[in-house]
C-alpha cells in the first residue's frame, strides 16, 4: 500500500524524488520523496516549521529546490516558472489568504478562469463578454455557494468566506492536481466543517494534496498521508497506519 516508486510499477501523477530545499544554513526539506496517484486525497502532516509549505512552494515553483526532481504526468517541472506549472495542471491555495482584495469575488474567479479558457491574452474584447468564461465563473461560484457574494469586494468578505474563495479561485484554473495549504487555518468549527464538506464533494478525478494542522480534518479528507518533521519525511502510508505509527505519535501527537 505504501506509495513508493521502488515497489510499484505504475507511474504516479505527481512524483517527487529526493527534493531538498536549503535556506542559508537551514535544510528546510531533506531528500523528500512523494508519490501521488491520480484521484488521490493525499494529506501532508507535520508540526510548524516541518517544511510542509516549502514542499508546496517547491512543487508549484515558488522556491527552487537545491536538488531533486518533480514530475507531473511524467513530465519534469524542474526549472519551470510557477505560471507555467499552472498551465500544466497544477493549482494551489495559500496558507495566508492570497486574493485580490480590491476586486470583486467574481473578478477574482474570472482572473483564474480566463487563463484556463485561453482568453488571458485578449485585449480587444471585454473580459466579461466571453460567454464560456462567464459560465464557468458562475458555475464555480454556485458550486461553492458564493454566488450571492459575486459582486462584493473581497476585502469586505469574512475570513471564512475568503478561505472559501481562495479554493474557488484555485479550482477555476481547472487543475488536475490541487494543492491546498491549510485551507481551514483560523476557521471556526462550523466554517471548518463546511470547508471539509466542500473538499469531500470535489470531483473524484481531481487529485488533491492537502496540508493540514488539524488532525480531524486530515483524517477526514485524506486516504494517504505523509508526515514531515524538520524537513524529513518520517512516515508515509495509509491514514489508518499513520494514526498508529509510534514515531508519528511521538513527534506530532506528543506522546512518548
Amino acid at each position: 500500500m505504501i506509495a513508493n516508486a521502488h515497489q510499484s510499477e505504475h507511474v504516479s501523477l505527481l512524483s517527487i524524488r529526493d527534493i531538498s530545499v536549503q535556506f542559508g544554513g537551514l535544510l528546510a526539506l531533506n531528500a523528500v520523496n512523494l508519490d501521488v496517484n491520480a484521484g488521490a486525497r493525499y494529506g501532508i502532516l507535520g508540526p510548524n516549521g516541518a517544511g510542509k509549505t516549502t514542499l508546496f512552494n517547491a512543487i508549484s515553483g515558488f522556491v527552487d529546490p537545491s536538488k531533486g526532481e518533480i514530475k507531473l504526468n511524467s513530465k519534469k517541472l524542474d526549472g519551470l516558472p510557477s505560471h507555467e506549472r499552472v498551465l500544466r495542471g497544477l493549482s494551489r491555495t495559500f496558507q495566508i489568504t492570497t486574493l485580490f482584495p480590491e476586486l470583486s469575488v467574481l473578478e477574482n474567479v474570472l482572473m483564474a478562469a480566463q487563463v484556463d479558457a485561453g482568453k488571458h491574452q485578449v485585449f480587444w474584447r471585454a473580459a466579461n463578454s466571453h460567454k464560456e468564461v462567464m459560465q464557468r465563473v458562475e458555475a464555480q461560484l454556485v458550486d461553492l455557494n458564493l454566488s450571492r457574494l459575486a459582486l462584493s469586494t473581497v476585502s469586505a468578505l469574512s475570513y471564512g468566506e475568503q478561505r472559501l474563495l481562495e479554493i474557488a479561485v484555485a479550482l477555476a484554473s481547472k487543475p488536475s492536481v490541487l494543492l491546498l495549504d491549510e485551507p481551514t487555518a483560523g476557521l471556526s468549527a462550523a466554517e471548518m466543517r463546511s470547508v471539509v464538506d466542500l473538499i469531500l464533494k470535489l470531483p473524484q478525478d481531481l487529485t488533491i494534496v492537502l496540508i493540514e494542522h488539524d488532525l480531524d480534518v486530515v483524517f477526514d479528507v485524506s486516504e494517504e498521508l505523509s508526515v514531515l518533521h524538520f524537513g524529513n519525511m518520517i512516515a508515509q502510508g495509509p491514514a489508518s497506519q499513520i494514526r498508529e505509527d509510534p514515531l508519528v505519535r511521538e513527534v506530532y501527537l506528543g506522546e512518548a
Binding site: 508549484s60 515558488f62 510557477s82 505560471h83 499552472v86 483564474a112 485585449f123
Partner: peptide, 23 residues
C-alpha cells in the same frame, strides 16, 4: 476592460496569486 486590462489590476494586488494562476 479586456482580460489583459483586468489582469493588470491583478498584478497590482498580488504577484504571488497572479503567478499561481498562470500569469
Amino acid at each position: 476592460e479586456s482580460p489583459v486590462g483586468i489582469s493588470l489590476l491583478g498584478v497590482r494586488n498580488s504577484d504571488t496569486r497572479m503567478s499561481a494562476l498562470g500569469y
